[in-house]
Amino acid sequence: MSTLSIEGLSWAVEVRRGAPRWLLRGIGLQVNEGEFVGLIGPNGSGKTSLLRCAYRSTTPARGHLCLDGEDLWQRSARWSAQRIAVVLQEFPQEFGLTVKDVVAMGRAPHKGLFDADTSEDARHVAQALEHVGLSTYAGQAFATLSGGEKQRVLLARALVQQPGLLILDEPTNHLDPRYQLELLRHLRGLGLSILASFHDLNLAAAFCDRIYVIAEGEIVARGTPAEVLTAELIEQVFGVKALVDRHPLHAYPRVTWIT
């Protein structure tokens, strides 16, 4: 379990020479040990960009990123890959990797240059595949899986990395309702610190301990789902009217779109 803290993070792309466009501005964000933190915001608001900064893929122009009190950018990519795993929507190309190959890639941060895979590694891989319910698919070509199965394989790869922090970009996108719930329940059960972006506000409400709302590159609200998800905020940020009440069975809020 790890803690991630981001302070004053800003990131810009250079549109023309000397004309930066600020895509992230003064972001502050904290993921405490074992906490499930959600990130919501409209399309193009900067969720993916923020997550990329958090796993060291893009270098922010300003700000601090600390994992367990250590400055991420003072450490190597390998160091952070041993502690942060990422589930992306980027699927390996049709080159003929099997499901097992893809999952085994998650051991890479723990391996030296010429290290062979040990039986320990094989055990991790088998366990992770079992976790996501795809044990029987081990030998199948990754490219032949359905979108949801691919998503689960990538989760298995992240688990094999044995991270303290898990970062997920729209993890439920390709999944059917059953696997959406199963995956999120599963993630909660892992006890890892998790930072995930969501489009489905009800899923975020049901599973997140805290939610950050991002709009046009700035954090505009933060807090528990009940604090954050109000009809006013949803209208202000997403520009749509919604009815927010309490979930009939649970304490968290329920969002109903007014169509």
Partner: peptide, 20 residues
């Protein structure tokens, strides 16, 4: 070789697995 596996899967994947 491990880095090539990761790169083949994509830039972001490579980074997230600790490869530059």
């Amino acid at each position: 070789a491990r880095g090539l596996n990761a790169l083949m899967s994509g830039e972001q994947t490579a980074v997230s697995l600790g490869f530059n």
